[in-house]
Design a protein around this nucleic acid. Structure first.
Length: 261
DNA sequence: TTCCAGGACCCTG
DNA sequence: CAGGGTCATGGA
């Protein structure tokens, strides 16, 4: 399997906020057990939970095939080459939801800090590490407790999201249905919903438009002109179809890391 | 000090 | 429907 584990796990996807890197080994608690994930010298993935590793890294995705589908111009070709082996990850829907509710108008380092504080305050402890907080624990939490975890104005949104998932069957078979459901929640708008669809549900036909994607799309595919979110998503669908989620993440990472420094 | 971060919401015109 | 202010928090 083609993968650059460090890049994948630290590219601003939910695992970036949840997993802890320790001596080159990524760790987290899942179902009361510490999961370890690492890459050996030959590039082979090693884990004490093959099933969860496959789920997280979407091992069913054939990166080479996906590259051939999305690398349709010089810009994407460069992004794919620069960050070869960066995979889209999948996380449980609740984890992706919580992470991206916290992401609004926030920085990656602050999101991570907030998630880690929530894990410490509300997660079950296992061998010195903490589980991701249960839906119930956040639904029951008081807003000030969430603000202690630096959730800020997103604290009430986090509770709303927990309640939504607690009180409904949130299993869906398409991006459109999942998105429609998620948008009922205060604090979840179009961009966050698309992120949850991509990184939680695993619908690769999602295309979240954040500030970086907007800049990238305006510059590269709209000749520098200011374009609407709708027209950007429409264009993404035309260009990359059922793999637009991958194109999205490569554009995001390429643009963010180049422009932001 | 001011601005901005993987936005969403609410209010104007 | 488009355009602005506002919301916590930390870093540049």
């Amino acid at each position: 399997m083609l993968v650059n584990l460090g890049l994948t796990m630290l590219s601003g996807q939910p695992p970036h906020f949840i997993w802890v890197k320790d001596n080159g080994v990524f760790k987290r608690v899942w179902n009361g057990k510490i999961i370890e994930l690492k890459q050996d010298g030959k590039g082979k993935i090693e884990s004490n939970d093959r099933k969860f590793a496959n789920f997280t890294l979407r091992s069913q995705d054939d990166l080479k095939k996906i590259y051939s589908k999305i690398a349709i111009d010089s810009f994407i070709k460069k992004a794919v080459k620069d960050y070869e082996g960066m995979r889209i990850t999948q996380s449980p829907v609740w984890e992706a939801t919580a992470c991206f509710v916290l992401s609004s108008n926030n920085s990656i380092s602050n999101i991570r800090n907030s998630v880690q504080l929530l894990m410490k305050k509300f997660g079950e402890k296992t061998e010195g590490m903490y589980e991701f907080p249960s839906i119930e624990s956040i639904a029951k939490a008081k807003e000030p407790e969430l603000r202690e975890c630096k959730a800020g104005f997103r604290a009430k949104y986090l509770k709303c999201a927990a309640n939504l998932l607690l009180e409904n069957d949130y299993n869906f078979d398409s991006k459109d249905k999942a998105k429609e459901f998620l948008l009922e929640c205060q604090g979840i708008g179009g961009k966050v919903a698309e992120c949850i669809c991509l990184f939680g549900y695993g619908f690769l036909d999602s295309f979240p438009v954040d500030v970086w994607i907007k800049r990238a799309m305006d510059e590269v595919y709209f000749q520098g002109k200011h374009s609407s979110i709708d027209s950007i998503q429409e264009k993404a669908g035309e260009l990359w179809g059922s793999f637009q989620g991958y194109a999205n993440h490569y554009l995001f990472y390429e643009f963010m890391s180049k422009k932001r420094k």
